[in-house]
Design a protein around this nucleic acid. Structure first.
Lengths: 183, 183
DNA sequence: TAGTACGTTCAGTAATTTCTGTACGTACTA
DNA sequence: TAGTACGTACAGAAATTACTGAACGTACTA
């Protein structure tokens, strides 16, 4: 049966590409392939089915699915009468994209802003002290300036992530290609 | 000398945060710390200075700097009379951000679009063949639909990256906080 | 031209990450 | 209540990635 092979190959090609792409975003290739499997599956899958399909351990399936859940890329599905946990992909890829980067970036941004603000405060302390030597004062001033610029950048990034989280970015880059239609 | 320590500590804190953040984007912590070092440095550094400062091998410095160069986050600086190569950070963090994601994402997007288009073509081939069994036809149709949706998503992502590359995103999310001033 | 200073290539090593199998806890079933 | 089916923690194994040091090529220097 040749056709079946063609379908299979067409899936595999896309799954590989998607997995590689997700890997670029810091997701393990295995997790990426699992996502691909779920993406093409016509029904939610159990851990055992995934294990079977990917030839990996159940433990791996468990932890991988959990990662995808944490990123809101996969959801737990409840089906009457089925005892095993079932999982399916979040169908809306835009939503997944926004969730992924909101979740992933927000932490980093917050951490950076906190660190920078703390350091700025320390530098200001040094600068406001009349006993500070001229040499130190100059160094502190330079660093202070750099940190202020960095802070501004992270605040901008925060606003970018806001526009992901609220989906307002879609007002600027609409899904519908005809962006300039309104004008 | 207490003040010097404070300055040092304030730098280290930010460098660590930045490195951790970059790690989130798929950059090695070592490379992140190197970037931090260059960020705070008041002058361009040589490989030997970096090696000294970070306590790592020159080989590592060479490859790490190359990575940062590839991402346009660091640039080679030429100074009259200095034989060694000198490197400094790209001062404009927004530019670095845009370059980073343009470079990193574009490849993945292109790869995915290619793969998806190829698979779609194959599926259409199967679908247009009158000998195709009803069972196969149905499967192909479902996959085809999924791939069309995925394609739409990647094309959207491509437009998002376009807005990074052209910096048009700054029209929507301005660096200057007062976004709604014009209205 | 020989000598030296530099950056990089490459093969091997170290460190980290990912994966597996066993053991365990919980919840449903008879 | 005992038994079974399930998901997950955890420790060790396998695979991958990051790092190093020696050797090499190139270009400047005397």
């Amino acid at each position: 049966m040749k056709d079946k092979e063609i379908l299979e190959r067409s899936r595999t090609r896309v799954i590989d590409a998607v997995a590689q792409n997700m890997n670029l975003y810091g997701v393990t290739p295995s997790i990426g392939r699992l996502y691909g499997l779920l993406f093409f599956s016509d029904k939610p899958l159990t851990l055992d089915e995934m294990k079977e399909e990917l030839g990996m351990s159940k433990t791996s399936m468990s932890t991988s699915v959990r990662s995808l859940l944490d990123l809101n890329m996969v959801e737990k599905v409840w089906v009457k009468g089925v005892r095993k946990d079932l999982y399916a992909v979040e169908e809306d890829w835009y939503q997944s994209f926004f969730d992924f980067f909101t979740i992933k970036w927000r932490t980093g941004i917050t951490m950076n802003i906190t660190a920078i603000e703390k350091s700025i405060a320390e530098l200001q302390e040094v600068l406001s002290n009349p006993d500070t030597s001229e040499e130190i004062r100059e160094l502190a001033q330079i660093d202070h300036l750099k940190l202020e610029k960095a802070l501004e950048y992270y605040e901008w990034l925060n606003r970018l992530v806001d526009s992901f989280e609220t989906k307002e970015i879609l007002d600027f880059i609409p899904i519908d290609k005809k962006k300039d239609l309104v004008e």
